[in-house]
Amino acid sequence: HNLTITQGKLFFHYNPKLCLSEIHKMEEVSGTKGRQERNDIALKTNGDQASCENELLKFSYIRTSFDKILLRWEPYWPPDFRDLLGFMLFYKEAPYQNVTEFDGQDACGSNSWTVVDIDPPLRSNDPKSQNHPGWLMRGLKPWTQYAIFVKTLVTFSDERRTYGAKSDIIYVQTDATNPSVPLDPISVSNSSSQIILKWKPPSDPNGNITHYLVFWERQAEDSELFELDYCLKGLKLPSRTWSPPFESEDSQKHNQSEYEDSAGECCSCPKTDSQILKELEESSFRKTFEDYLHNVVFVPRKTSSGTGAEDPRPSRKRRSLGDVGNVTVAVPTVAAFPNTSSTSVPTSPEEHRPFEKVVNKESLVISGLRHFTGYRIELQACNQDTPEERCSVAAYVSARTMPEAKADDIVGPVTHEIFENNVVHLMWQEPKEPNGLIVLYEVSYRRYGDEELHLCVSRKHFALERGCRLRGLSPGNYSVRIRATSLAGNGSWTEPTYFYVTDYLDVPSNIA
């Protein structure tokens, strides 16, 4: 807008934040220059609390790290170098490059900038070799853009010569660093050979998330399962459950009422301010606690030095998902009996873990797994792929695949051998790939016309006998059925096997 004052003059007093240069501009645009008398524009009460600059400061050096910015700028000295009290560095987070010096300023003089007072450097006698002032900004957020400017702080001049310097606002972004852990990993099994893994992005990506790394490792069953005799009275049979499938998407929606109208769909109840505040506090606490764990609990591995020492970490090797089922080394339970199943799973520490690289999504279907087997899954978020990966501390989750139908069934015939004193040795093959492992066998036998009897055969007993022995049988026709019990439950009964026990007292003698 054009402003013209045809008559009258300007009068400025007691404006401590208004620089004289701005008042002189007002004289020019209003056409009143030359009308004012000496005392109409006070030299001592206008701009006496402001830094009124008329020179431009330029930054000469900028260096960044993930949490620091090192700045240096060209030296500046007023005509009387004693008038320079120091520099004021202003900075704040700036997602967009549209910041002005006066953003967030209120009537009390406060604003949204963080201000650092910096002492002037030592003055050199040689004007050509003056030290460049600077400042190291610490405690910054990774991968965050900051708006920065600097200006001088000078003393009051009796001659009211307006001098000083100020830089333009520059924008500097800190470097990326390792992201925080992925949030809320959930693993479920939808079949006997697959596990579905879902997660949420890290709360602090500290860069642009480029991919996720998912490692999985087959877990050995508890050692007590191999040692305890679950045929003993009072000892509860062990059981394991597989990871249940995901709930429906509708039930997972946030901010939804727990109660549904019987007449149909209901609208979600909005969260109160107290609920939102509580969630923010919980989120802040979780982030602080995660940072504490990362800094205190997890110790970084030592990389190899120039002395030739090897990095103890196993090298990563990509495998196809079809090879995942046989990740671990199978060892027989008892070496003397080769027909026992290889369900003991000690994992070799030198073995390469299978892994998958996930790009542009937060889910993965891990296939080719062994049925009813526990897996430990390790999830890392990465925001750099080359020249070397920059990934987060791992988040861990466990899951067990679903049982395989008929995996616990005894394959092959049940054979028998009759000894003296009416002892019958029953023999059968253990299931080759049971659900988890076989903890015991149930032997059901009966003599024709009598009630059915049951015998429990422990895992250890089966390994020693290759089956079991029935003792003290009365003469007669017998039928026997056997079924295995694994961590997933009972298998199917075998087809009945028949044998006849004679009275050993009636056996004919070869003595003449």
Rank of each mutant, 00 (worst) to 15 (best):
G472D: 08
E249T: 12
E495P: 06
L487D: 02
D273I: 15
Y259D: 06
E420W: 09
Q380N: 15
S458H: 04
F289Y: 08
T347F: 07
L505D: 07
S367K: 09
S239W: 15
E442S: 14
S392L: 00
L453C: 05
V324E: 08
P300M: 12
T386I: 12
C231H: 03
L235T: 05
T373G: 14
M402R: 03
S223K: 14
E378A: 07
G489R: 07
L455Q: 11
L379D: 00
H461T: 11
D408L: 03
I276W: 05
N208C: 14
R316F: 15
Y292L: 03
E351S: 13
Y212S: 07
I418H: 04
Y441S: 01
K302Y: 07
Y441C: 00
G207L: 02
N206H: 06
N339E: 12
I418V: 12
K460H: 10
S315I: 09
P312D: 04
E442R: 12
E420S: 03
S444G: 15
V393W: 15
D506S: 13
E452D: 03
S341Y: 00
R353F: 08
P270I: 04
D409K: 12
G467V: 08
S257C: 05
D229C: 04
S203R: 15
H454L: 08
D204L: 15
L426A: 00
K361E: 08
V439K: 14
L470R: 01
R471W: 04
V424K: 03
N360W: 13
D250H: 08
Y375R: 01
F462A: 07
V214K: 04
E281Q: 13
V324P: 12
Y375K: 00
L293R: 01
P403A: 01
F419W: 15
N206Q: 04
L237H: 15
P431F: 03
N208E: 05
T303W: 07
R481C: 06
V358Q: 15
V501K: 03
L369S: 08
E227C: 10
K460A: 11
F246T: 10
D323H: 15
C468G: 02
Q252C: 14
E465Y: 12
D323T: 14
R313P: 14
E465L: 13
Y478F: 07
G476Q: 01
G489S: 05
A405S: 09
S392N: 04
H371Y: 09
D261K: 10
Y292D: 03
S268I: 13
D261T: 12
V214F: 01
F499W: 06
Q219T: 03
A335K: 10
G234L: 06
P475K: 10
V345Q: 11
D409W: 11
E217H: 15
P332H: 14
M402V: 05
T485G: 06
F419M: 10
P332S: 12
G207K: 03
V329T: 06
A263E: 13
C468M: 13
S492V: 09
N422S: 12
E389Y: 09
T303Q: 12
Q252N: 07
Y396D: 04
T485A: 03
S283W: 06
T340K: 14
L379H: 03
T307Y: 08
C391L: 00
E247H: 12
H461Q: 10
T272H: 06
L235D: 03
E378M: 07
R446S: 07
S274V: 08
R466S: 09
Q275I: 04
G325P: 13
K302W: 13
Q252A: 13
E290V: 01
L437P: 09
E281K: 05
D261F: 05
F215G: 08
Y500H: 08
P244H: 15
G449C: 06
T373Q: 04
L237A: 08
N206M: 04
P245Y: 15
N383L: 05
E388M: 10
